[in-house]
């Protein structure tokens, strides 16, 4: 990836608690190129959302960014404060939250909010700002955008509100949009519409997306690249199709194998034993070792980052060999529509 617009290097975010410091994000590094979509995948407590918040500097006490860099077009934005940070946020990097009502003010019309968002960074007339807001709504596939600008958030459906939130994030053509579980609360038919729009927007505008989600199927059909997180660390990276087809890290393999749609109906699902560990009580070395079918004596020490062909990596002492793993896609053709 030659022209990374966003480069996260050894990011560490900690939370101060009564029992000591928790490493919610523990040395995370990744890069996203122009117009690319990176899927940041993990289960609850893996640190995927905190990573997204840390990139935008949205961590508040008792949390703090303890180390690392977030390079946006080569400039570290973790050190920015006050006005400097405000000029970057919303203009060069923006965020879409799971709940669009975190973005939208319930007592202001959509138009009022979007015009304010335009004029926060650009000195333009209200008329020009209104036109840009209208164009942004049209771009995310909202029908009759003029009327929507005159509506209050509660007058729109959940899917429409999420489109508005994405339109606001797109207003200043940012280099990067961080999206935190943006379709998790939506119905599948609406989710399908939004994923289609996002893919088109990334291709057309060149905006890069970091798509934070727990849903492997969404990432599989949307993202170019994948980072899988577990207990605050990235355990596997690679091109989305490669990671899905032949996961290297036992955790990724376990996650993929436990998706019911990949199995014959009624068949016993391969399950990852145990549950996600508490960050305050992580085992030494590899945090996944107690649940891992490949765990061996070395796993009590910190695993190395193993590099493979095509730029793939896995944080593991005993990664899965490429030929020993069956491609999961072979069994999955049955439930696509026959039409």
């Amino acid at each position: 990836m030659s022209e990374a617009v966003l480069s996260v290097q050894d990011l560490r975010t900690q939370f101060k608690t009564r029992t000591g410091m928790l490493n919610a994000v523990d040395g995370v590094s990744f890069e996203v190129g122009r117009g690319r979509i990176l899927g940041l995948v993990g289960e609850s407590g893996s640190g995927k959302s905190v990573t997204g918040y840390s990139i935008l500097g949205l961590i508040e006490p008792p949390g703090l960014i303890a180390g690392g860099e977030v390079l946006l077009n080569g400039r570290d934005i973790t050190r920015l404060k006050g006005d400097e940070l405000r000029r970057v946020r919303g203009a060069q990097i923006a965020m879409v939250f799971q709940d669009p009502m975190m973005t939208l003010n319930p007592v202001l019309k959509i138009g009022t909010q979007m015009i304010a968002a335009v004029r926060a960074h650009d000195r333009v007339s209200r008329r020009t700002a209104w036109e840009r807001a209208r164009d942004a709504l049209a771009k995310v596939g909202i029908p009759s955008p003029e009327e929507r600008l005159d509506a209050y958030p509660h007058q729109l459906s959940g899917g429409m509100r999420q489109r508005v939130a994405i339109a606001i994030a797109l207003l200043h053509r940012p280099a990067v949009i961080i999206a935190d579980e943006p379709t998790t609360a939506l119905d599948v038919s609406i989710q399908g519409q939004i994923l289609a729009e996002v893919r088109r927007l990334a291709d057309e505008t060149g905006t890069a997306f970091v798509w934070v989600t727990h849903d492997l199927a969404v990432v599989s059909s949307l993202a170019d690249d994948i980072c899988v997180m577990y207990a605050g660390r990235i355990v596997e990276t690679g091109a989305a199709a490669d990671v899905i087809a032949s996961p290297r890290h036992p955790y990724t393999a376990g996650l993929l194998a436990s998706v019911p749609a990949e199995h014959e109906p009624g068949e016993r699902l391969p399950q990852v034993p145990g549950s996600t560990p508490s960050l305050s009580d992580l085992p030494p070395g590899c945090a996944f070792a107690p649940r891992c079918f490949k765990a061996g004596p070395a796993c009590t020490t910190t695993p190395p980052i193993q590099k493979f062909e095509d730029g793939r990596t896995a944080l593991c002492h005993y990664p899965i060999e490429s030929n020993s793993c069956q491609p999961l896609s072979s069994t999955s053709t049955t439930y696509r529509s026959a039409s």
Binding site: Q191, S220, D224, A240, A241, L328
Partner: peptide, 9 residues
């Protein structure tokens, strides 16, 4: 509409 694993982009 359902996103599927393994069908690729």
């Amino acid at each position: 509409s359902v996103p599927r694993i393994g069908v690729g982009r």
